[in-house]
C-alpha cells in the first residue's frame, strides 16, 4: 500500500487512466443484461440526487397559482416567476444572512489558505530544523479531533468571542488534513528549480510566492473549495456562538425558515393577494444556499482525484 500511495501522489502522476475510451482486445464484449442493469443502477443513483433538487428549483420559481393547484411542491414548471427571489434579495433577513455568509466564507477562506499554505511550505523541506516536532504538533491534533465541544465553548466565551464573527472563523481556521495535502504537493515541486532560485538569492517567501504557488494552482483550487464549503455550510458555530438573530448566517436562517417553518422576518407584513407562498420562499432560500456550491464544485472537480489520492488514502 505504501508503494501504491506514494507512486500516485505526485502532480505528474495519474495521467494513465485505467480505462480510457476503448475496450482492450482481450476483454469480452458486455452482455445485454449486464449493460442494462448497469445503466439502470446508474440512472437510479443519479435521479435520486437530481430529482429532489429539480423539484426544489422548479417550486422556487413557480407562481402562487401553480403552487395552489399542485397543493405544494411543483414537479413540472408552468407559471414561472422570480418573485420569491426578488422579495428575498431586496433587503430583509435573508439578504442580510447572505451577506454574512459570503463575508464569513470569503474572509475565512482567505485567512485559512494563507495560514495553511505557509505552514505546508514551512514543513515541505525534509530535514529542515525542527521539521519533525512541528509536524508532530500538527498531526497529534488529528487524533483528538472533536474532543472538546465544551472546553472549546468555554474558551470562546472567555476570549470574548461570543456573538462575534471571529467565533465562526478562528476555531475552524486550520485544518491539518488540508495542510498535509498541500504539503504533499509542495514536496513534489522540483528541488532543482528551488535550489537554483536560492542560489540566485531568492528567499523562502519569494520562492513560495513566485515558484511553488504558480505550480500548484490545481491543489490550491481544491483546498480553497474545501475551506469555502466548510465555512459556507457551517451551522453549528452560528447556533451556539451567535446570540443576536440579526447576525445569523444563511444556514441558520435556512434552518429556521424550512425546518422551524418560520416566515423570514422582513416578509411577514406582505399579506394579501400579492403574497408569495411559503413553499416558494422556503425552496428559494434552499436554492440560494446550494447555488454557490453547485456552481463552483464542478469547476474544481477534475482536480479532486489527484488531490484526494494523497489525502484519502492517508485517511
Amino acid at each position: 500500500m505504501n508503494a501504491t500511495a506514494t507512486r500516485a501522489t505526485g502532480p505528474e502522476a495519474g495521467g494513465r487512466a485505467p480505462r480510457s475510451g476503448r475496450r482492450p482486445a482481450w476483454e469480452e464484449p458486455p452482455t445485454r443484461v449486464g449493460l442494462t442493469a448497469k445503466g439502470a443502477i446508474l440512472a437510479i443513483a443519479l435521479l435520486a440526487i437530481l430529482f429532489p433538487l429539480w423539484i426544489v428549483v422548479v417550486t422556487s420559481v413557480s407562481d402562487a397559482r401553480t403552487i395552489a393547484e399542485t397543493g405544494g411542491l411543483v414537479v413540472w414548471p408552468r407559471g414561472v416567476t422570480l418573485d420569491a427571489y426578488r422579495e428575498l434579495l431586496s433587503g430583509g433577513e435573508v439578504s442580510r444572512a447572505m451577506v454574512v455568509s459570503i463575508g464569513v466564507t470569503v474572509v475565512g477562506t482567505a485567512f485559512s489558505m494563507a495560514v495553511s499554505v505557509l505552514a505546508a511550505y514551512g514543513l515541505s523541506r525534509l530535514g529542515s530544523l525542527w521539521h519533525r516536532p512541528i509536524l508532530f504538533t500538527l498531526l497529534a491534533t488529528m487524533f483528538f479531533g472533536g474532543a472538546g465541544i465544551i472546553p472549546t465553548y468555554l474558551l470562546i466565551q472567555s476570549l470574548g468571542l461570543m456573538n462575534t464573527y471571529a467565533a465562526l472563523i478562528l476555531p475552524m481556521a486550520v485544518n491539518v488534513f488540508n495542510i498535509l495535502v498541500l504539503r504533499a504537493f509542495f514536496m513534489n515541486v522540483g528541488q532543482e528549480i528551488i535550489d537554483s532560485a536560492r542560489i540566485d538569492g531568492a528567499g523562502e517567501f519569494r520562492i513560495l510566492w513566485r515558484i511553488v504557488l504558480p505550480l500548484s494552482r490545481a491543489v490550491l483550487a481544491v483546498i480553497s473549495l474545501f475551506y469555502a464549503v466548510a465555512y459556507w455550510g457551517n451551522w453549528f458555530a452560528g447556533f451556539i456562538y451567535l446570540t443576536d438573530q440579526e447576525k445569523l448566517p444563511l444556514q441558520n436562517v435556512l434552518q429556521q425558515i424550512v425546518i422551524g417553518n418560520e416566515r423570514p422576518a422582513g416578509m411577514a407584513q406582505v399579506i394579501g393577494t400579492g403574497q408569495i407562498p411559503s413553499i416558494a420562499v422556503q425552496t428559494a432560500v434552499m436554492v440560494l444556499a446550494l447555488l454557490p456550491v453547485a456552481v463552483l464544485s464542478p469547476f474544481v472537480q477534475r482536480h479532486f482525484k489527484k488531490g484526494m489520492l494523497i489525502g484519502a488514502i492517508k485517511g
Binding site: A114, V115, S116, L118, A119, Y121, G122, L123, R125, S128, L129, W130, H131, I134, T137, L138, T141, T152, L155, L170, P171, A173, V174, V176, I179, G203, E204, F205, L208
Partner: peptide, 18 residues
Amino acid sequence: DGALILMTLPAVALLVVF
C-alpha cells in the same frame, strides 16, 4: 531554516489556542 519555522507559526499558534 528560520524562515520556514516562521511560516509554520500562525498555524501552530492557532492549533495551540483552539
